[in-house]
Design a protein around this nucleic acid. Structure first.
Lengths: 347, 347
DNA sequence: TTGAAAGCGCTAACAG
DNA sequence: CTGTTAGCGCTTTCAA
């Protein structure tokens, strides 16, 4: 049996290089050369092949060529989940990548596995699965673990630890949290709760630290009952906010570690008949799209998400160009308080 | 020369199945069996292999296994660009895909090529490049061309033509445009401009149609000078808005075919010293995140973007499950007017 | 100028 | 229970 019998039947799925070769009456390698614009193919053959290519709508498979070549000209953005924070970054990354010659591929690895280990190390898995060949480089959003060994150049946004991988971008969480909490204090609040972020993340640690430090400055002792875990996610923040608001001596203000938690906190408050900001002031963190249009508009700490994405791309492109890896760079961007409608002077 | 010489040197990039096999002292196929949980491997061997796997941090390459198997358990979202509209859809899609067992991969094919043909048929290219093996199915956002032949199940959102591909989701653009224009008319406007969308898209055609029809209802003759091409993109909308506002007898209100154009129109107006809504009313279309937080908050026609994404996933999963393709379904969701701050009674 | 053959990393028959 | 072999679609030497 020969390798391939004559195939006259119409091509079912996508056309492969084989189909083109067959139809053009040339070898597979010739088609490859034509498609990739290599030298050494006669004009006549080339034209014929090109004709068949467009007739069949042939497009070289990213997968197959990727496996064979080293490169793909695709950079990947690896996220745990497509939530607003990641999406805003993605937009910035996408814009910054225009005209760079790279395509963009965003991947959310499944959070499958045991529930406890859902998050743990997702970025290593994704990176390993895609990094072999599919992507030339990657931007990892909020990695949870030090990915010391990466098969491709990587830059991390909002990494687990300060100076983990080769390159990282984040925002000054400590300062942001200071601003948020001071704002609340200036409004006359003394009993201020904190819905903490994901405790395995450096950013969450720093935001709590800022919260504590600001209270300290003002001579307010931190009540441990006023700090709860929200995990940066709406679902988990529900409990945190609830227990805070059910307290005998409940806080008059809450600093939530991110906007998702803050918004959920407001919803929980509403469910208990508490009006924001009249009965409760809430400040978030991130300034995701949607924070401003929330009702009430969310007072929050703004992260320059687009800029962070753009910076990540800049760093990544540099790594991709230079063979030698530049010194591990860590860019920390400033956070800024945006006062809107969810905070008010203590009633 | 044997197939592989003993490799003692530390593994540089990612570990391959070969490295694992070597280190565990078994064959490649045994490793494959262990990793994929196939029967027929002794507990002892299995344990040893697993040990090496975790030690080396081995993760099967999506690319390679994809090429070999038919499936990947990944669905793709193909977009021309990561702009707000697509990102909002992406979020909906992502949520709907939770716990479905599928990973999500969003891909923006490069808009390279001659400028005129930048957009033309990008989805066919992307689909062809990825569809061979990388993704099991795809959601295509705003395809420009009928992709009759797809290698994998596909559902389109906001397709070029009404009932093009096998399945499609869109919003009732005609009705939305009617609502938008009527709203302006009710506010006392008679001279109403239209910044048209991408004329190659059905949605743009319908929005213009709705605009014209509403004017007709009100007995207003359409002034051809009042309709300009904005191409759904901010950059192109600049000229459209500019020429409208530079008119001798300029419009007192403008219906822009999408929010990006509307926002740009407002900016252009501001550049000419016109205040919105005092001197000019503007209504957009889409209600992207950011529309509400714009200054002034944008009056617009809301598309249920999350719901559209979720519906797309539902349709796609059904196709993926059933071998036989269900009847080409076309879901049309309602659009609704959201009145905010960019429109006002004619001064 | 063209084609045969090897091989990227992996899985699946099939032998042993 | 384990290993050998073929091959997914493609690119790339190397011969012819």
């Amino acid at each position: 049996m020969t390798t391939s019998e004559t195939r006259t039947a119409p091509i079912v799925g996508r056309a492969t290089i084989h189909d083109v070769a067959l139809a053009a009456g040339v070898s597979v390698s010739t088609v490859s050369k034509v498609v990739n614009g290599r030298y050494g193919v006669s004009a006549k053959t080339s034209a014929r092949v090109l004709g068949v290519v467009s007739e069949l709508g042939y497009e070289t498979s990213l997968i197959a060529s990727s496996l064979r070549r080293g490169r793909t000209n695709v950079v990947g953005v690896l996220v745990a989940e497509f939530e607003p924070f990641a999406l805003a970054l993605l937009q910035g990354i996408s814009e910054a990548l225009q005209d760079s010659g790279y395509d963009l591929l965003a991947y959310a690895g499944s959070l499958s596995g045991t529930d406890d280990a859902r998050h743990e190390g997702w970025e290593r898995r994704s990176l390993s699965r895609l990094g072999g060949t599919l992507i030339d480089g990657a931007v990892i959003v909020t990695p949870t673990v030090d990915s010391a060994t990466a098969s491709v150049p990587v830059v991390a946004i909002d990494p687990h630890t300060g100076a983990s991988g080769p390159a990282a971008i984040d925002v000054d969480s400590l300062d942001g949290a200071l601003q948020a909490t001071r704002h609340l204090i200036e409004l006359g609040h003394r009993r201020i709760g904190h819905v903490r972020g994901r405790t395995d993340l450096e950013s969450a640690r720093l935001r709590e630290e800022g919260y504590r430090r600001a209270l300290g400055e003002a001579g307010i002792v931190v009540d441990p009952a006023l700090v709860r875990d929200g995990g940066y996610r709406a679902a988990e923040a529900t409990d945190a906010a609830g227990s805070l608001l059910d307290l005998e001596d409940r806080p008059t203000a809450i600093f939530a570690a991110n906007d998702l938690s803050a918004i959920r906190t407001i919803e929980v408050a509403a469910g208990r008949g508490l009006r924001v900001p009249h009965d409760l002031s809430v400040v978030g963190f991130d300034d995701i799209p949607g924070a401003a249009s929330h009702e009430p508009p969310l007072t929050t700490i703004r992260q320059p998400l687009h800029e962070m994405g753009a910076t990540a791309v800049r760093l990544l492109l540099r790594k991709l160009d230079d063979e030698d890896d530049a010194p591990a760079e860590h860019v920390r961007l400033p956070a800024s308080l945006v006062v809107r409608g969810s905070t008010a002077r203590r009633g």
